[in-house]
């Protein structure tokens, strides 16, 4: 029993560790997925990101934390203050100690960080056959390929090709480095019911949650690009002026 769980732990550690390096090595080509935030002027598709949040909340958050994001941040996705407060209050947050020295649970507030599914890593491993579901806060920055990789991974579950024997408790994925992943296919058709009537196919849900997680990892992206455009326009004009000044100053020098 102890040996089995140790093996599973070692395996999970090994696989999680292998992921980024292999991706960096580029031995598995990640297909390019068209996202609203691609390119220089791309922005977040708010509707898609909101649906992605629903997928995260109803599916991913059973195992994966998002510890660097607060409920208040959801305002940036277009939710109202009341909606954010309502969402936060659905979660019981441990707070305290109170006047008697006891920790207590209270409904979440917008200022709280997203509630973690497990109290600590050991609890997370115990519930997941020894594997540690990684935190998703900066996931698109922590994997080569970013959101493209997330989408590919979520839609990359297939039957193992003939001749490949999976280890105990592992699943075959086309895009996971080494192809054996501890996480089973996380999303199934119609697993969530979208309020806006969008059909909840696996592809749609994977696309939406990838958009949401890209936003979670880089909430500054839109502001950054907008500021960047202004600054580069300003600098280009300044470069022209500076060059003109330089020409004028050097006009009397033969060189």
């Amino acid at each position: 029993m102890l040996r089995t769980s140790f093996k599973a732990l070692a395996l999970a550690l090994g696989l999680f560790a292998a992921a980024p390096a292999h991706a960096a090595g580029g031995d598995i080509a990640i297909p390019d997925r068209k996202f609203s935030f691609d390119g220089v002027f791309g922005t977040y598709d708010r509707a898609s990101a909101q649906r992605g949040f629903q997928v995260y909340k109803e599916v991913c958050s059973a195992c994966h934390s998002l510890r660097l994001v607060s409920y208040r941040n959801l305002r940036e996705l277009g939710l109202t203050e009341a909606q954010v407060a309502a969402i936060a209050s659905q979660f019981q947050i441990v707070d305290g100690p109170n006047d008697e020295g006891q920790m207590f649970e209270r409904p979440g507030r917008p200022a709280d960080r997203f509630r973690k599914p497990f109290a600590n890593d050991a609890a997370a491993r115990a519930a997941n056959n020894g594997a540690l579901p990684p935190d998703l806060s900066v996931m698109t920055k922590a994997r080569a390929g970013g959101a493209d990789y997330l989408f590919a991974l979520l839609t990359g579950y297939v039957d193992p090709p003939p001749g490949v024997t999976l280890m105990d408790g592992m699943h075959y994925n086309k895009y996971f480095p080494g192809h054996q992943i501890a996480m089973g296919a996380p999303i199934n058709p119609d697993q969530v019911e979208y309020a806006d009537g969008t059909k909840a196919t696996v592809e749609q849900m994977a696309h939406d949650v990838s958009t949401f997680l890209q936003w979670a990892a880089e909430p500054e992206l839109e502001q950054r690009r907008a500021l960047g455009v202004k600054i580069i326009i300003f600098l280009t004009i300044l470069a022209g002026l500076t060059y003109a000044v330089k020409r004028k100053i050097w006009a009397d020098v033969e060189h």
Binding site: P20, A21, K141, I232, T242, K246
Partner: peptide, 26 residues
């Protein structure tokens, strides 16, 4: 000054549009 402004443009492209390009995802 001419070189400096041109340099700032290159710097800005990196900072605003590819801030993690030279880093490692790990």
């Amino acid at each position: 000054s001419v070189g400096l402004v041109v340099y700032f443009i290159v710097f800005a492209v990196l900072v605003f549009f590819a801030p993690n390009y030279l880093g490692h995802p790990d």
